[in-house]
Each structure stands twice: as C-alpha cells, then as structure tokens.
Design a protein around this nucleic acid. Structure first.
Lengths: 343, 343
DNA sequence: GGTCGTTTTGTAAACGTTTACGAAAGTTGC
DNA sequence: GCAACTTTCGTAAACGTTTACAAAACGACC
C-alpha cells in the first residue's frame, strides 16, 4: 500500500493526498476528511525511506549507547525510565526514538561515521561522555546536530545536560562535616568519564570550605561496578588511618561496598559513614539505608527530549546550544551518622 | 557527498560506481580499486534512505523493548550483554541493529503497525512475550519476518528462542528434594508473561516425580521486581506451615527476598532454602550465595543474531521457522541446604 | 580487418515521497 | 457575463540509490 494506490482508490491526485496527510494548507476540508478516513481504513502509513529521501530528514532521534562499555548508570532501571519519558515527549512532537547500540568490537568513531553518513537520524543523543571524547570531536565536524547526556571538555557546537555531580559531592562533604567527620574518603571512577572530575572538584571544594587539608590517600579509584565497589570497601577498611566517612559517585558501587563491609563485620554508619550517589529502588534493600540523592528521572527524560528537538528548531534563539545542570536533592539515611568511638 | 559527486570526481558513470561499491561482478579490478579508494578518501557512505527505497530492504534488524513494562530480565546487564553479542554477529553479516523502544503510553500494537508500515527494518526481535500476545498476532498478519525471545501460545509464522524455564524449575525441585525438602514453595510472576507457565509446569513435574502433592498455598504470585521479591519473602515467612524451600523464577526478586529475610532474621539456607533463577554479578553480593543457574549470555546473543538472519534467507530450508530452548546449568550455593531443625 | 564472444561501462528507469508550479474551479464585485 | 481574485487540485521534478538493458571496448580467431 503506497500513496499512489491510496490516491487511485480515492480518484484523487497523489499530490493532494500527500498534502492532506501532512496537514498542508489549501486542501478542501471535505477531501481532507476523505483522505484521512481512507488512510486509516487501508492502514496506510507513509514509507519512511521515501519520505526521508525527499525530505532530507527522518523525523527520528538516535540515542547512542555503548553496549561494550556500559554507562555508569546502567546498573538499574535508569535508562528504562529516562528513555520512556524522553520517548513519550518525542512521540508527542511526532518524532521517533531509536536506540543505536555501538558494540564492543566496533570503533565508536567509525560507528558514528556510518550513522552520520547514512542519514538515519536527524539528531543524536550521546551518553557516557568522556572528558576528552573523540566521538564529540567527530560529530562536531559533521553537520548532524547532537547533544550529550554528561558534559565533556571536548569543544563543539552541542547542547548538554548533566547531573550536578559537583553539587552532590559538595553537599555530601557538608553533611559529613556537619556531623563531625574530618577524615572523608571518596571513591572515584578509574577511567576518563567526565563525572569523576566534577565529583572530585565538589569534594575538594567541600574540604576547602571546612578547612580540611586534602589527603591523597583518601582518594581512591575503582571501576564503576559492583566489583569495583567491593574492592573499594576492602581498600577503605584497610587504610592505615581509617577514614570515618566514604563518599560514592555512583550507586552501583554502593552494593559492592556494603558487601565488602558485611564480610568484614563493618557496619555502614556505625563504623564508617557512607553517602551514596543516586537513590534507586535497589537501595531499599541495603541495610542500613544509605544516605543518597534523589533524581527525577522522568523530568530528566522529558528535558532530554525537549533539548534535542530544540536543536532542530529553525528559530535561531531556540536552537542555540546550551548546557544544563540537573540538581539532586539530599535524602538522609542511617548510613551517615556522627563518627563514633568505634572509629 | 552523494554517489553522483563521487562518480563525477572519478569521471566514471554512477552505475559502475554503485556496482563497485556493492561488489557486483563485472567491474574492472582497476576501477574497483579506484572507486573504493576514492570512497574512503571522500568519506562516502551510501545514503540509507535512497538505498532502502530502491532495494526494498534496509539491512537493519529491530529489537523491540517496552520501556514502560520492562522485561523481567531488565534488572541487570542482561540486555547489555545479549545485545552486544547479537550486534557483533549482525555487524559481521553487514546488518545494523537498532533498538525500538515502545513507550508506556503507546499501544504496542499500534506501535508495531507504524514500524511495519514505515518499513524501517527488515526483521524484528520481540521480547517479553506474553502467553497470549496481541503483538504476535499483529505481526503474523503482516509480511514482516520476526522472532521472539520467549515463547508464546499465540500462533504465527515465527521463530523463537526461550530459556529452559521448565527444566530449571524441574531441576530446582529435584535438588531440593534430594536434600530432603518436601514442602517447597514457588514464586511466580503475577502477569501473563509466558515464562511463568513454563516454570510452573516444571515445578509441578518435579513434585509429581517426587510424589509430593501440590499445595496451592505454596504457589505465590508477585510482581517481578525487587519489591515483589520483598513481598514474597514476607509472605513465605508468614505462611501457616512454613515451607522449607523457596524457588524463584527470576533473579531480580532474589534481592528482595534476601532483604525481607534479613529484616525478619531469617537466613537463607539455614531457615529457608532458596533457589534463584539466573546467576548474575549482583548475586556475588548476596549472603549466603544463592543456588542458581548459569546462562551463557554471549552465546544467546549470537544465537539471536543467527536466528533472525535465518528468517531472511532465500533458502527455504534455512528460513524455516523454528523454536529453540536454551539450557542453563545448575550452580550450587549455600542458600540451598538440607531442611534443619530450625524449620 | 572483419566477425564473434566476452568483459566492462553508460543510460535510464524505478523505488515512494514531498513540493514548486501552474491549471482549474469557485467566488466576488461590478 | 466578465474580470480579478482566491481556493483547490493535478502534474512533474526531485531526493540518492540500484539494476536491467543496451552500448562500447576489448581480445581472439579466422
């Protein structure tokens, strides 16, 4: 079923049918209705290839994930919820969302070259940005509009949205200091993911505020995974002069830290205080409940949709590239308590 | 950069350029090389819309997920690993993989109508199949080849791959019985997901084998989530005549069960034995380690890729629809022990 | 060198849309 | 009833490919 068959069936020219289907002005209300009715009756939907070939646009937004190097958020439903909200918004604006998985054996830059050249999307959302990100450099050279979820220091004409890692770290330090902690350790990712830098910066700012000198031995780097968290827990407990608090920049490591603590008979809060990153459903099952930060995933998803479509606006003012930092709210938990005699 | 520009640049006709790029026979080796060289130099990649319009095929496989009702496996890296392996295989066969998220507010059947009619993929992989699945009925009416990850009772001309839920349940019962358990509870999903039926069937088979009469009160239905598992744990502990073992058809509920047990001072293995479903990295952090089943996610992903491409083969024998059940291997764990005095 | 067969290349149509343009039909005002 | 608009519609070109077909180039053979 193509547009010609539909037109013949109606004894109407193919041009008017197209106009009717696309809400173009200047088509008689009566014929408009006839066309729309016939289209749904015959189950006609415009062929995407034909349409995008002519239009030069696909009405599709691509969301790039790397299945080989899962983003730090992948541990739970993060993406499911965010993608759902984003998809919802895009659908309202008559855009489609597709997720483009770049597999582990593929070069991300080459992968993007293909995506760009083949023209399967009108704009891209990139995730798991690095501080120095070749993919961004690559996209910046192309004409394809894109945005990132996560900042990067690689320059380029793009919008971005990022969580307020710096603010979270700062607040974490402040909360710990408020309770009397002075010896505060931090677990950072061991790769170039941008969030690590921002988290560290907030951490340092917090220390400075409180007049606490930085101790390099309290800054630990581990993979962002349960295993990494496990290792982190062990390392922290083994430190010569054990810290009284530990801050985490990722929630997936929290489970590992708890497991390590459990093995060693260390109780979070009582022996070492803990502040995790993002609140998630799994945390309901960690005991004692970790102090953490709440993020509105729905709002984030919608915002991603809005931002990426803004890129495509013909209005210069709207399509101007911009950055946005999403705040998180502190959620107290029993894992954060005053440093006791125990430590 | 389109094929015409490339052809002009080479002073060659557009036809030969196309033939060269597509490895069609009858192009002089020398010009073949020239074309390929110029293509990479100028960064030419065929426009997907033009190509699929002409060819009637897109060389793309769609993987459908429902972000609103996440599949039971979504709790961990299941999809990441499976998709990665599948994508890798497809890439080797020069196919692209895109993930098509159907959002919560959308009707899955309408969603599929659009996907089908717009012709953006050559074949589909469906997930989270229901026992009675309207989507399958919908696809069966269309000409679009598809397969499912998970069986369904809805008929249609499609291939499927499913985990051996029945075998896992049977084996779980057998292992429990071997240790002396007679009062064995089971936690099933509370919706129409097909796996629930197969798991239950294996469970019943196991009971029959051991000559244990079925007790309806031991068959519990909860949502497939951490919360569901939590509720399950509470329910099981509160049963009048408490079971000595509990079997789970999903790993995400396991965490919840452990949490519930923890709150009540019940220790898995000592007080109530537990057999979880699929082994996953998170289980490393449950204590005592749950007995569970190992699945080769990589192999599964590759198999998905092979199966979906087989659908497209011109060879009748290869493209014949088929079903396949993937076995899992038992992994002992301290959560499964003989029923003690404690119970 | 002409004929024939083979290899290589060029030409043009086709895929399904959208849209610029002009033609037709309808409306208004005199 | 005709001119001057306005509204509505039909025609055809264009988007970037692939491919059937015909044309050209090439080699071999007599």
């Amino acid at each position: 079923m193509n547009i010609r068959r539909l037109a013949d069936h109606l004894n109407i020219s193919i041009g008017t049918v197209s106009r009717a289907l696309n809400n173009r002005p200047g088509v008689h209300p009566e014929t408009l209705e006839k066309v729309l009715k016939a289209a749904t009756e015959l189950g006609y939907v415009a062929n995407q290839s034909g349409r995008s070939l002519r239009r030069g646009a696909t009405n599709t937004i691509g969301f790039v994930i790397e299945t080989g190097h899962p983003a730090h958020q992948a541990g739970d439903q993060f993406f499911y919820v965010v993608l759902d909200a984003m998809n919802l918004y895009l659908a309202e604006q008559r855009y489609d969302l597709v997720i483009l998985p770049c597999h582990s054996a593929d070069d991300p830059v080459e992968f993007l070259s293909r995506v760009i050249a083949r023209g399967i999307v009108d704009a891209l959302v990139m995730t798991a940005t690095r501080r120095v990100d070749h993919r961004i450099a690559q996209l910046a050279k192309s004409k394809l509009p894109f945005m990132t979820l996560g900042r990067s220091e690689t320059p380029g004409n793009y919008s971005w949205i990022d969580l307020d890692f710096e603010g979270v770290a700062l607040r974490s330090v402040q909360e710990a200091v408020k309770l009397g902690h002075r010896r505060i350790a931090v677990g950072l990712p061991d790769n170039d993911v941008a969030l690590g830098y921002h988290y560290k910066s907030g951490y340092l700012k917090g220390l400075a505020e409180a007049g606490i000198p930085m101790d390099e031995s309290l800054i630990l780097r581990v993979p962002t995974s349960e295993m990494g968290g496990f290792s982190l827990g062990k390392q922290v407990a083994a430190l010569a002069e054990r810290p009284t608090a530990l801050l985490l920049c990722s929630e997936v490591t929290a489970a590992g830290v708890y497991a390590a603590f459990g093995e060693m008979g260390i109780e979070a809060g009582r022996d070492i205080s803990l502040v995790a990153f993002r609140e998630n459903p799994l945390m309901r099952f960690l005991n004692p409940a970790p102090a953490c930060f709440r993020l509105d995933l729905d709002a984030l998803g919608t915002r991603l949709g809005e931002t990426v479509l803004d890129l495509l606006s013909p209005d210069e003012e709207i399509s101007r590239r911009r950055g946005e930092i999403v705040p998180l709210t502190f959620v107290p938990g029993r894992s954060l308590q005053p440093p006791h005699a125990g430590s």
